[in-house]
Every structure is written in structure tokens, then in C-alpha cells.
């Protein structure tokens, strides 16, 4: 069982959260002229690291806020979590 620290509610068990995927993907800005390949990269291609991974979670059975987590994909250790508009305090 993962124990995840919601930046709003504190530590809660994994059951209360749902996952939102790679947190480093940035949608191209509205109206920005970008190549088709850049669109494909945004939609389909991932870094998929073994080790530290920045990702999104939602405290879906709690405060329902989205937030960022820095987690190790090999050990499942969670280094840090922060609000969406913050940076990790590491």
C-alpha cells in the first residue's frame, strides 16, 4: 500500500487517490504553430524513466484536488508531493 501525502490533506492511503499520468507533459499553447510531429510527441511519446518520475495524482476520495508527486518507479518511494502551481521542495 502506498502512503501518499496530499498537499492539502496530509498522508492518506493509496485507495483514496487516482493516478493522472506523467506530470511533465505540457500541452502546446493554444493557437501555437507547431509541427505535426510535435503534436504526436505530446500525445503519444513518453520519457518513461526507471527511477524518479514526476506524475499527477488526484485525491479523488478526499479533497478532489490534483497535485504533483515525485516518485521512484522502481522502488515506489515517494520523495515529495506539491500543489500544481508549486515546485517540489527537495
Amino acid at each position: 500500500m502506498l502512503e501518499i501525502k496530499c498537499p492539502y490533506c496530509g498522508k492518506r492511503s493509496q485507495n483514496e487517490f487516482s493516478y493522472g499520468g506523467d506530470g511533465t507533459i505540457k500541452r502546446p499553447a493554444l493557437g501555437e504553430e507547431i509541427s505535426t510531429k510535435d503534436w504526436d510527441d505530446f500525445v503519444y511519446f513518453r520519457d518513461n524513466p526507471r527511477g524518479k518520475h514526476t506524475e499527477l495524482w488526484q485525491h479523488v476520495s478526499g479533497c478532489r484536488q490534483w497535485f504533483k508527486a515525485s516518485r521512484d518507479t522502481a522502488t515506489h518511494e515517494i520523495f515529495s508531493t506539491c500543489k500544481m502551481n508549486e515546485d517540489f521542495n527537495e
Binding site: S13, Q14, Y19, N48, T73, A74, T75
Partner: peptide, 13 residues
Amino acid sequence: DGYNSYAQRGNMP
């Protein structure tokens, strides 16, 4: 399990 993982083990939930 529902989150990126390279661990060959999962969690109880």
C-alpha cells in the same frame, strides 16, 4: 496497478 512502475511487484489495493 495503475501507476508507472518498473517494480516486478504490486500493491494490495
